[in-house]
Nucleic acid binder design. Structure first.
Lengths: 135, 135
DNA sequence: GTTATATTCAACCATGCGGTTGAATATAGG
DNA sequence: CCTATATTCAACCGCATGGTTGAATATAAC
């Protein structure tokens, strides 16, 4: 059951699509950090860094907890796992040498279609991404 | 050797952070598809869908090849593998029951700090994301 | 050659994103 | 109480993104 809704994966991958945020995750892999600690390495305002952290929170990649006057963040690995699960669906394409086989088939096709016969492969659609519960 | 530069991962994860594009990848998992075929399920102009495909190309998730008057797309699994590799670094956080252990430690800490002694854990920084070759 | 099909290109538009600054809030410490 | 520290909030800005439309290009079909 690798079923996550679109919005979740959107925000998740969007959160991962920024090197500052990935850097913060990497830092959090070393243990809990305060907002200030996470922000410090970056050449941007604290407010900007804090926004990045909020994005990570929104994607449930990070949990923030107030402790006295500082807010400490911790990595929330389940979200990362969700991303990994999604990717796992495509694992067969690189794991088994299926891609090599694909290449051979494609090349054979190219040669075939250039010598005549059209539309040999890929005419069938998989059930269309059903408009609101995709991926 | 799981070393990819920031920009690559930025564009890669950004490309994955859109459900239309993920839907297209899913479709391409079924084999080669033309631009028109990929665009058809979506309630947007062909031009818009084509732009999505270009984003996928830019992230090297898809290879497009002109064949006659149509352009056929194929899945390029190495890029997906890159994303998977990046995630793998964090696998330990959810695979081994290390996260559970972490929870226990954290709770213990919370109790400890609420009963007195401050700043027990997480004072050490891992080497800071070195500003241009991070993640 | 003309027409239809498949796709791109260019200009444009609204919205969101990553950043800034300055003020507000809340806790800790002298 | 007053001040310093840690963080958020709100307003603003420039730029990228995701979408549109209409014209351009190239191949296929008649």
């Amino acid at each position: 059951m690798v079923e996550y809704n679109d919005a979740t994966l959107d925000t998740l991958f969007h959160a991962l699509g920024d090197s500052t945020r990935r850097g913060m995750l990497h830092e959090l892999a070393g243990g809990e950090r305060t907002v200030g600690q996470l922000a410090e390495p970056y050449a941007m305002s604290l407010a900007a860094a804090a926004k990045h952290i909020q994005v990570l929170e929104g994607a449930r990649l990070v949990h923030k907890e107030r402790r006295g006057r500082m807010h400490v963040c911790r990595l929330e690995p389940q979200a990362l796992r969700r991303a990994s699960d999604w990717l796992r669906y495509y694992e067969r394409f690189w794991n088994t040498r299926l891609d090599v086989l694909e290449n051979l088939l494609r090349d054979a096709d190219a040669k075939a279609s250039s010598t005549g016969a059209a539309g040999t492969r890929a005419p069938r659609r998989t059930p269309p991404p059903p408009k609101g519960k995709r991926s």
